[in-house]
């Protein structure tokens, strides 16, 4: 019973949120856009949470995988790869956009994770993102250069598919994190983050689990990138390969409470709200406030909001 309660409440919450577009007009209400953005952040944040919160490896490459997903979607669409009529919210395209980042995650994750720890892994993934950025800018026809790839925005009808897909992905990401942590894999991950040497001596094949977490994280980021490409209709280095897409998930995850299932959701909701509201009501100076909020939260609740609550229960 105890185990079922959180699952039921999450499923219920998801269903309830799924009804919002029927209540509130998705074309007129800012709420739908706001929640869409929040869900996107939840997906990225949960992906980062899986790597950093559970294995203790700080990745600064979320934006690279996010962009890889978006670029894959855009390229498949532009090249008309399957000669289908419709690539807009096409599940195969989206899944492929998740898998391409996985390939890259494996290619860089295996060498990096087998050699590097902690800070160096962070720098390595950051370097990967920067290389990818240069390649995309210099990619000529293939990547569309600095303009990027433009997609036909005429297919857009409503924001509802974006909203529901984002909700589904957020649900999926949360589910993945939940089941990973409850399964043997999750136990292994936590063991790694707590004491790597002890974990390896008790027979956990560390590299495998770390790479697995990293690859799943890349998959989630890629899916999210694909979805965002469907929203923006232009995939460009300046829109996708910017460090914000890495820093936001880190921020949201840590503020919410990394290494927990619910923390990232709370963090994403709170920070998206903070960013949106400050940007609306304090235009021009809102990054100052964001900066102050980040510093204050880190100083006074460094373990995340969720732990404030958990401590007492």
């Amino acid at each position: 019973m105890k185990n079922l309660k959180p699952i039921t409440s999450v499923v219920l919450a998801t269903l309830l949120l799924g009804l919002i577009p029927f209540v509130s007009d998705s074309e007129k209400s800012y709420l739908v856009y706001f929640l869409f953005l929040t869900f996107c952040h939840i997906v990225l944040t949960q992906g980062w949470n899986l790597v950093a919160g559970y294995t203790g490896q700080v990745s600064l490459g979320t934006h690279a995988f996010f962009a890889l997903g978006a670029y894959t979607t855009a390229m498949i669409w532009r090249a008309d790869l399957f000669s289908w009529e419709n690539y807009y919210f096409d599940p195969v395209t989206m899944i492929l956009s998740g898998l391409v980042p996985v390939i890259f995650a494996l290619a860089i994750g295996i060498p990096l994770l087998s050699k590097l720890h902690g800070d160096y892994f962070a720098l390595g993934t950051l370097g990967f993102g920067e290389i990818l950025k240069v390649v995309c800018i210099k990619g000529g026809q293939f990547t569309g250069g600095p303009i990027g790839i433009m997609l036909p925005s005429s297919v857009y009808t409503t924001m509802r598919p974006h909203y529901w897909t984002a909700l589904f992905l957020a649900f999926l990401a949360t589910g993945v994190v939940y089941f990973m942590t409850k399964s043997r894999v999750g136990l292994a991950l936590v063991a790694i983050s707590e004491d790597e040497t002890a974990a390896s001596s008790s027979g956990i094949y560390i590299l495998k689990y770390k790479v697995l977490a990293f690859a799943i994280s890349a998959f989630l980021s890629g899916l999210c990138g694909s979805l965002y490409a469907y929203y923006l209709f232009q995939v460009s280095p300046e829109g996708f390969l910017i460090l914000r897409w890495t820093l936001y998930p880190v921020l949201m995850c840590v503020i919410g409470g990394s290494g927990t299932v619910v923390g990232p959701i709370l963090g994403s909701l709170l920070m998206t709200a903070v960013f949106t509201v400050t940007s609306i009501y304090l235009p021009g100076i809102h990054p100052i406030f964001s900066g102050i909020i980040i510093i204050l939260v880190m100083l006074f609740m460094p373990n995340g909001i969720i732990r404030l609550w958990k401590k007492g229960v």
Binding site: V58, V250, I288, S290, G291, I294, I295, M298
Partner: peptide, 13 residues
Amino acid sequence: NITLLIAVGLMFL
């Protein structure tokens, strides 16, 4: 992560 984020916050600020 905490020090990283404080540094980021300081940068924004």
